[in-house]
């Protein structure tokens, strides 16, 4: 918990948003062979937005949490934008490849349960998948920029060895062909090297921004809960925070609750944990645990006399 909640969470959210904004802009641009800039179009972006929306709605339904103040709303908007930019950035812009990737992303990102450690949707496995899809997109962009409109071409043995130009059209087999229109290339063709730089940097910035934003959003929620607990008298507030440690607040479902429900939930949790604590204490006081592990006999009697020297218990 930070000494200055506003400073810490707001700075993180702002920086995360900046990273996402810059990264999203880079992922949305391409440079043609003449050095002119153009956008990557709306198709992949719309699909990315749809997938991100699905992922966020499912997450909200699972967790039952909603943003409760301006910073919370900003965090959710940033996360949505980041997820949209990343998903649309790795999608092939068109053709059958795109639909295969949509199905894959829907299965792995949208319907996957959020990971606690990685701060939301982007676990390390998902991150690896997204990086692989980006690599695939870069590969087909490279092929297209070289005017090779297929994933790869395989030389046909013998035919490809013959030095006759008229055999050129049948010397190779193209695998996974695509068209410039499917790829959304500008009319002057794609300049691969600068576009590669734009997309790679954009992807990295978006992912970093999303992680930072979600971490800050969690910190902001913790700050909000902390503020509520500290409306109690100081000693009592410290006691509640010892019973309910901050690390468990998200897992206990305290994030995203409205203030009144949050208070009720904390009351219920404190009550539940105190009851459990009392039950445990009673069990320890009754010495039942000790009797269950006592080997009995002379050694057991001595051991019991040392640990529980009350002679009246023997009489009972």
């Amino acid at each position: 918990m930070s000494a200055n909640p506003e400073h810490s969470a707001t700075t993180g959210l702002t920086l995360g948003g900046l990273l996402v904004g810059v990264g999203g802009a880079l992922l949305g641009l391409q440079i043609d062979q003449n050095g002119s800039w153009s956008g990557t179009g709306w198709t992949a972006f719309a699909i990315g937005a749809l997938l991100a929306l699905g992922a966020m709605l499912l997450r909200a339904k699972r967790e039952g949490s909603l943003p409760r103040d301006r910073l919370g709303i900003f965090a959710i908007v940033t996360s949505f934008a980041a997820l949209t930019f990343v998903l649309s950035g790795v999608l092939a812009p068109g053709g059958p490849w795109m639909f295969f990737e949509i199905a894959l992303l829907a299965a792995v990102v949208v319907f996957k349960r959020p990971q606690e450690r990685a701060g939301g949707w982007i676990g390390y496995g998902v991150l690896g998948l997204l990086a692989a899809l980006l690599f695939f997109k870069l590969w087909i962009a490279y092929q297209g920029s070289e005017n090779r409109w297929a994933l790869m071409s395989v030389n046909i043995p013998v035919l490809s060895w013959l030095p006759f130009e008229f055999l050129d059209p049948i010397k190779r087999i193209a695998l996974g062909s695509f068209t410039p229109h499917e790829m959304g290339f500008p009319p002057a063709g794609l300049s691969f090297a600068p576009t590669l730089a734009l997309w790679s940097i954009g992807f990295a910035l978006c992912v970093a921004g999303m992680l930072l934003s979600q971490t800050s959003a969690r910190e902001h929620e913790n700050d909000r809960i902390h503020e509520l607990i500290h409306t109690l008298p100081s000693g009592l507030a410290n006691f509640v925070e010892r019973i309910l440690p901050e690390e468990e607040w998200h897992a206990l479902g305290l994030h995203g609750l409205p203030e009144r429900r949050l208070a009720r939930r904390i009351e219920a949790l404190v009550s539940e944990r105190m009851a459990r604590q009392n039950e445990l204490q009673s069990a320890l006081d009754a010495g039942r645990l000790l009797s269950q592990t006592n080997p009995g006999g002379f050694a057991g009697g001595i051991y019991r006399a040392i640990v529980d020297p009350d002679p009246r218990r023997d009489a009972l």
Binding site: T10, L13, T14, G17, L18, V20, G21, V22, G23, G24, A25, G28, L29, D32, N34, S36, W37, S38, G39, T40, G41, W42, F45, R70, L71, F74, V77, T78, A81, F85, P186, P187, A188
Partner: peptide
């Protein structure tokens, strides 16, 4: 800062509509 970041996010969406030079 938050408003500026929001504007940047909107711009990041808008750049996708830049049409290639005919």
């Amino acid at each position: 800062a938050l408003v500026a970041t929001g504007v940047l996010l909107v711009l990041a969406v808008a750049v996708r509509g830049i049409t290639p030079r005919a």
